[in-house]
Structures are given as C-alpha cells and as structure tokens.
Amino acid sequence: MVVLNKIYTKTGDTGETALGNGARVKKYADRVNAYGTVDEVNATVGLARLHATGDAADQLARIQNDLFDLGADLCRPDMAKDAEAEYPPLRMTDAQVTRLETEIDAMTQAVEPLRSFVLPGGSALAAHLHLSRTVTRRAERLCVELAAAEDVNPAAVKYLNRLSDWFFQASRIANDDGRADVLWVPGANR
C-alpha cells in the first residue's frame, strides 16, 4: 500500500529523482523520460474517459491501471536483480499484451476495412483517443531507445506497441464503428 503523507520532499530540487530501486538519476535521464511519457499517456486517457461510456469506459480504466504498472516497471532498472529485491518489482506481463490483442481483434470485427488513412478527429472521444495514440507512440520510441542502452522488460515495449493500435481501433469504434471517420484525401488542397 502506498501512503503519501507529504507531497513535496525537496529531494528533486537539484534536478535529480529516485528510481524504484533508490538510485538517484538526473530528471532528464532516458529512463525518466520513458516513464514520464507513459504518465503523459495516462493523463490523455483520463481526458478520453470523460467522453467514454460502457465497455469503452471500463477498458480505458483498465488501461490506466496498466499504465501505472508500466511506469512502475520502467522506473525499476536491473531486472536481473529482481529476485534479490526486498519487495518483488512489478513487471508488465504478456497476459496484459494478450488482453489488448483480444480487444483489438474484437474491435476490428466491428469496423469496415479502411480504404484510406484516418485523420485524427470525428467525435470528441475519437479525437482524444488519437491523442492517446500519438503520445503512446512517443512513449514506445523512448522505451525502444532506452532498451538499446539499458535493461527493459520486453513485455513493456510490446504493451506500448499494442496500445497504440488499441487506441486507433477504439477511435474508429468511437466514430460510429468507422462510419464517421475523417479520411485523408491525398492532394485535396493542391
């Protein structure tokens, strides 16, 4: 259980922050950029949830919780030392990736195949889901970059990759199962 008795600690006043293992790093460290961007994704999902109802609202709530799991995973380097940790680190799992894939497959069955690229927009929910998709893509790029230099849970990277696809399909569902998608018309304004 997390207990936050004091919100400001002043420990970051010198431009450093603590990782999940207690190590101090610069606030601009690659790992901090990666999990900070995951936090940004979570904030965009919160905006999308303002427009969601039913299954979409429930799915977005699960995704927000997963994103906190993902942040916890990314803030804890040294996966090889997980067994030695006083408290077992929280890591993303393939089951979380599989759940997204199952939901994407169900959404894909509900929409017509695309004949053009989709412009971000349509309904308010769809527009917010597109924003979530683009920020997720940035988070994925940062995690891939981090993984090139440091140890990163492969399930974390896979989750972000599937999540951007999930947001795309969910945006189509939010646009009347794709019937209200805003389609790109190549060269329309020449």
Rank of each mutant, 00 (worst) to 15 (best):
E150P: 07
K27G: 07
W166L: 12
L100D: 12
V3F: 05
A61M: 05
A106S: 07
P113F: 10
R76I: 07
Y35I: 07
A52Y: 06
V185Q: 12
V182P: 04
H128S: 13
R76H: 15
T136L: 14
N153D: 03
Q96R: 13
D78L: 11
V182A: 01
N161A: 13
A57R: 15
Y87G: 01
A61E: 11
D66N: 05
Q64L: 00
R179Q: 13
T134F: 08
N42F: 07
M79D: 11
I173T: 05
N5F: 08
L90A: 08
V45W: 12
A126S: 13
A106V: 00
T17K: 12
G12I: 11
A106G: 00
L19P: 14
V45H: 11
V144W: 11
D82P: 00
T108V: 15
S116N: 12
S164N: 06
L125H: 03
S171R: 03
D94G: 15
A170V: 04
L47T: 07
R99I: 10
L67V: 11
N42T: 12
R99S: 10
Y8S: 14
N153V: 00
Q96V: 05
V2T: 12
K10W: 02
V182R: 02
G46P: 14
A34K: 06
T11W: 00
D177I: 00
V25G: 06
R133Q: 06
V185S: 05
N161Q: 13
K81I: 03
E103K: 02
D165L: 01
N175Y: 01
L129F: 06
R133A: 03
E140H: 09
R162Y: 03
L19M: 10
R62C: 04
N5D: 04
M92E: 08
W184D: 07
A95E: 15
L163E: 01
G71M: 07
A85K: 10
L19N: 14
L163G: 03
R49T: 07
P77C: 13
I173K: 09
D151Y: 02
L19W: 12
A43Y: 03
G12D: 07
R49C: 04
A155I: 06
G121S: 08
Y159N: 10
T102W: 00
D30E: 14
L50C: 14
D39T: 06
L4S: 13
R62Y: 00
A72N: 11
N21E: 14
P120K: 13
